[in-house]
């Protein structure tokens, strides 16, 4: 399976951070050259999320996870996308393999927290998500998103919560935390 070379990936990531460039054109050209590279599909999925093209985003993230089932970040993002799309059962199924991560891995802790959250177990959710934030040194933008969820949980626990959080915040950081992830050169 041919994977995108490091220099090509770095060039792509650098260009995505610049304005006025056809990001989709760039990533799609690389996907044509390396159709089995899960990272490229994940990147495309993240760009599609940012562009509000939800159906194609789901397909791209699913393709990334299908190509590389151990790609934990892609799996987490796919499940999170499904959760925010109102498909909790599917999200839980997507996340199930993440149970094989060490229990103190930040993605495992985020999943645990989100599982508590959708059961309205706000205190448990806050505890797990907060531990996840402390454990996550790879993706600061993801910590920012999760912190917003934690803050909202606190507000709900106090009875002053509101009902739409991710709509305002999640889109902006999807790509940036992805970029940080690649910059750190890890998939776990």
């Amino acid at each position: 399976m041919a994977l995108c070379k490091d220099e090509e990936m770095n060039e792509l990531l650098a260009s995505i951070q610049r304005d006025g460039i056809d990001h989709f054109g760039l990533v799609e050209r690389l996907i044509a050259a390396y159709p089995d590279d899960a990272r490229l599909h994940f990147l495309r999925g993240s760009l599609l999320i940012g562009a509000g093209r939800a159906i194609e985003a789901h397909a791209a993230l699913s393709r990334a996870v299908g190509l590389e089932p151990e790609f934990a970040l892609a799996r987490f993002q796919l499940g999170f996308f499904e959760l925010t799309s109102g498909e909790p059962a599917r999200a839980l199924a997507t996340w199930e393999p993440l149970d094989r991560l060490p229990a103190d891995h930040y993605l495992a802790l985020f999943v645990t927290g989100l599982r508590h959250l959708i059961r309205d177990a706000f205190d448990d959710a806050i505890a797990a998500l907060t531990r996840g934030i402390a454990a996550n040194t790879e993706n600061p933008p993801l910590n920012h998103d999760i912190q917003l969820i934690v803050d909202e949980c606190h507000r709900i626990a106090k009875g002053t919560g509101q009902a739409s959080l991710v709509a305002e915040t999640e889109e902006t950081s999807a790509t940036s935390f992805l970029l940080d992830q690649f910059a750190s050169g890890t998939k776990h």
Binding site: A54, T84, I118, A121, I149, E152, V166
Partner: peptide, 25 residues
């Protein structure tokens, strides 16, 4: 019947896109 916690996370355009995706594909 969504829980309060789930409602917190829902992104309405995605919820609708999910319905179309599941119906069409």
């Amino acid at each position: 019947g969504s829980s309060h916690g789930l409602k917190l996370l829902l992104v309405p355009p995605r919820v609708e896109a999910s319905l179309w995706r599941r119906l069409r594909y």
